[in-house]
């Protein structure tokens, strides 16, 4: 081993020590605790065997899938619009759309309360229209809006970059062969964006699966996995269930990201 290699290993040591002490060891502890409950080993599968947890899992999966699809759909429309049109104020619009990039989940929850809460803007508008006060912040719909709010800026950043990279000649070639607007979108643009859509969609999905701050702010009554883990751990002090559910949740989010990463290059989530 030459001296530069030796230095490289030395410089890698602090990282290794930190990850070992504060990630791998705690992970082992979680695995152990999950199996130490009154149900023993059966606890590992509690997410699939307890009807209440199964329902929560399905609700969380449905919510996350819905959020992902909605965010991607909005993202594609907006990214294509911004890439194809140049107009005064465009830069400002881009800034407005991407600035909330790192608003934490709690703050996003508050944004949804201002929008759709008991004194929210939407409720005010529907009331003045004589439709009654529309309040949906403290429900699944509110959580849905919150996760879309959270993921839209990052999805947009990724998709706008991907749209810029698309070769305009591809669309022109398809049109020269007789393809109409819809066929160009279906056969050229969406396949061209597929890697970006997969990567950013996976992050949006994983984020929605594990996000806690927004749900915490909106209500403790919404049954999503993160809230269940939280209540099992802090209120019920049911450590083994909390650990088993955490492991299941971690496996799902990591699995989704790992499965798509090889296909789509790398991308990182920033759950708040």
């Amino acid at each position: 081993m030459n001296s530069a290699d030796r230095l490289a290993w030395i410089l890698l040591l602090p990282l290794g020590a930190f990850v070992l002490a504060f990630f791998l060891l705690p992970l082992v502890r979680v695995v152990a605790v999950a199996g130490e409950g009154p149900n023993g080993m059966a606890e590992y599968l509690v997410i699939l065997t307890n009807p209440r947890h199964v329902a929560t899992l399905l609700a969380t999966l449905t919510l996350s899938a819905g959020v992902t699809l909605a965010t991607l759909a909005i993202g594609v429309v907006v990214a294509l619009f911004l890439a194809r049109n140049r107009f005064p104020g465009r830069a400002l619009l881009v800034s407005m759309l991407t600035l909330p990039l790192a608003f934490p989940g709690v703050v996003v929850g508050f944004m949804i309360i201002l929008l759709a809460g008991r004194q929210g803007l939407i409720g005010g508008i529907t009331q003045s229209l004589g439709l009654g006060k529309l309040v949906f912040a403290y429900s699944m719909a509110g959580l849905f809006a919150g996760y879309v709010y959270f993921s839209l800026p990052r999805v947009l950043v990724t998709l706008m970059a991907a749209v810029e990279k698309l070769d305009p000649a591809l669309s022109e070639a398809a049109r020269s062969l007789g393809a109409g607007r819809f066929a160009v979108l279906r056969d050229v643009i969406l396949p061209g964006l597929a890697p970006a859509l997969t990567a950013t969609g996976a992050i949006a999905f994983a984020t929605a699966m594990g996000a806690f701050g927004t749900a915490f702010t909106l209500a403790t009554r919404i049954d999503v996995l993160a809230m269940t883990i939280y209540t099992e751990f802090t209120l019920a002090a049911n450590f083994s269930t909390a650990c088993a559910l955490s492991l299941a949740l971690g496996l799902i989010t990591w699995g989704v990201l790992a499965a798509t990463r090889n296909f789509a290059g790398s991308g990182v989530a920033a759950a708040g």
Binding site: A169, A174, L177, G178
Partner: peptide, 30 residues
């Protein structure tokens, strides 16, 4: 798309999501 012309681009603009024969057949497909 209505002019019925064939176009060859400098970058070729071949559709990467389709095979060679799918590329060639694309105009007939649409």
């Amino acid at each position: 798309e209505k002019r019925h012309v064939g176009m060859v681009f400098q970058s070729y603009a071949l559709f990467p999501n389709m095979s060679v024969v799918e590329n060639v057949a694309y105009g007939l497909r649409v």
